[in-house]
Amino acid sequence: MLNMLPRIIYPREMVIKKGSLIRLKFLDGKKAFIICGGQSFEKSGYLEKLEKHLAASKIEIVAVKRIIKDPTEDSINTIMTQLKDLNADWIIGVGGGAVMDTAKLIYALYENQNIPLSDFKAPHSVPELRKKAKLCLIPTTAGSGSEVSNSAVVTINNKKTPIISNHFIPDIAILDPNLTISLPPEITAHTSIDAFTHGIESYCSSLNNALTNSYSVAGAKLIVENLEEVIASPSNIIAREKLMYGSMLTGLAQSMTSVGGVHALSHSLASEIELSHGNLNAIFLIPMLKFNMQESPRIEEFIQQIGLGGIERLEEWISRISENTKMVKKWGAYGKEINVNEVSEATLEDISARTNPRKLTVEGVKSILEMTF
């Protein structure tokens, strides 16, 4: 009952500015375990900067683990075998949504080493953390909002599973737009569409409230106003920073309200095919909104508040982004053998479906899958 109330839970500290990675120079602690992305973070020179900042704060880096795929229960358990005896008092996740989700899941197991990850599938079942370490999250994309959210998605038994816990909200979130400069336009688009979807689904969630509504609208408006500029001019640091603000705001909103049918369907299909979460959201967003509009006037209300006027202009914006970044527009080529009945049933079971503004049905989800095939 408590967790169905509109609770307001923030990171203990957020730092948002060009060059804010320097905040690491002032951490209190002794040992840090770093979880980061692939080679690009190192090639950009920012891994070296991170190491220098931590050295200045006299924090020893006990290990660096690079993540190149979305987390699975097996991959999390493998990392845990390396971490459990290192006595880290900071877990630092630097990367996109998959990296930060991995950091959260590692943190949960590091603090509770005798509990399997699968025991955390029920919402808010992660025991209290911060007995051994603190959590710092640093995004290198403007999209997932994971740096301020209470969720982490992991594959358990071949099924994408959101793990929900307010203990995942970090002690420090550092949002430095410099870290996003080298992000390719395609990934920029995928992650930003995900962030936009957080905004509109939070606004229409059955748990929405006045505060989250203001975050959703402000964040989505920043994304709409700046995404195309960043795609056209990737080094525009001002637009990059505004995108990060937008992603952070919609991330805060969805962390308090959850999301809806777009995310539920994306989670379910992502267990079956190799398409990015953001690309799947782009495929399903307009059809799901049209499905929900039959019972929710809040969708048109939201679209008007962010300056797009109506669903047609939103559809044009999504289509333009997709064209300019070569997004996949139909999922069928990636999943011809998929059982749509099973995916539809899994969508209804996903926790995100609970807060969709219209009750989802197997037939309704199947119709969306078929029209986007």
Rank of each mutant, 00 (worst) to 15 (best):
3 N>T: 11
5 L>D: 07
8 I>L: 06
14 M>G: 14
17 K>P: 03
17 K>S: 08
18 K>R: 06
21 L>G: 04
21 L>W: 04
22 I>M: 02
27 L>F: 05
34 I>M: 02
40 S>T: 15
42 E>I: 06
42 E>C: 01
58 K>H: 14
63 A>W: 06
65 K>C: 10
65 K>M: 02
67 I>S: 08
70 D>I: 10
72 T>N: 03
74 D>L: 13
79 I>F: 07
81 T>I: 04
82 Q>D: 10
83 L>R: 01
83 L>Y: 02
89 D>E: 09
89 D>L: 15
91 I>A: 08
93 G>S: 08
94 V>S: 08
99 V>R: 11
100 M>H: 00
106 I>Y: 00
107 Y>N: 13
109 L>A: 01
110 Y>V: 03
111 E>V: 09
116 P>K: 07
119 D>S: 15
123 P>G: 03
126 V>H: 07
126 V>N: 07
127 P>I: 03
133 A>K: 02
136 C>M: 09
138 I>V: 11
139 P>H: 08
146 S>L: 05
150 N>G: 14
154 V>P: 00
157 N>K: 13
158 N>G: 10
163 I>Q: 13
165 S>C: 09
166 N>W: 11
174 I>R: 05
176 D>G: 12
178 N>M: 14
179 L>H: 14
181 I>Q: 11
181 I>S: 08
184 P>V: 15
185 P>C: 14
193 I>N: 13
196 F>L: 15
197 T>N: 05
200 I>F: 04
201 E>T: 04
202 S>I: 10
203 Y>D: 10
203 Y>I: 02
210 A>N: 14
214 S>L: 06
218 A>F: 05
221 K>I: 00
222 L>H: 09
226 N>Q: 04
227 L>H: 05
234 P>G: 01
234 P>Y: 03
243 L>R: 11
244 M>T: 10
253 A>K: 08
255 S>E: 02
256 M>Y: 15
258 S>F: 11
261 G>L: 15
262 V>Q: 02
264 A>Y: 02
271 S>R: 04
274 E>M: 02
275 L>E: 01
275 L>I: 10
276 S>V: 03
278 G>P: 01
278 G>I: 00
285 L>W: 10
288 M>D: 03
292 N>G: 07
296 S>H: 02
299 I>E: 01
301 E>R: 12
302 F>T: 06
303 I>C: 09
307 G>K: 10
307 G>I: 03
309 G>K: 13
317 W>I: 04
322 S>D: 09
330 K>H: 15
335 G>D: 04
338 I>G: 07
338 I>H: 02
342 E>T: 09
368 I>S: 03
370 E>N: 15
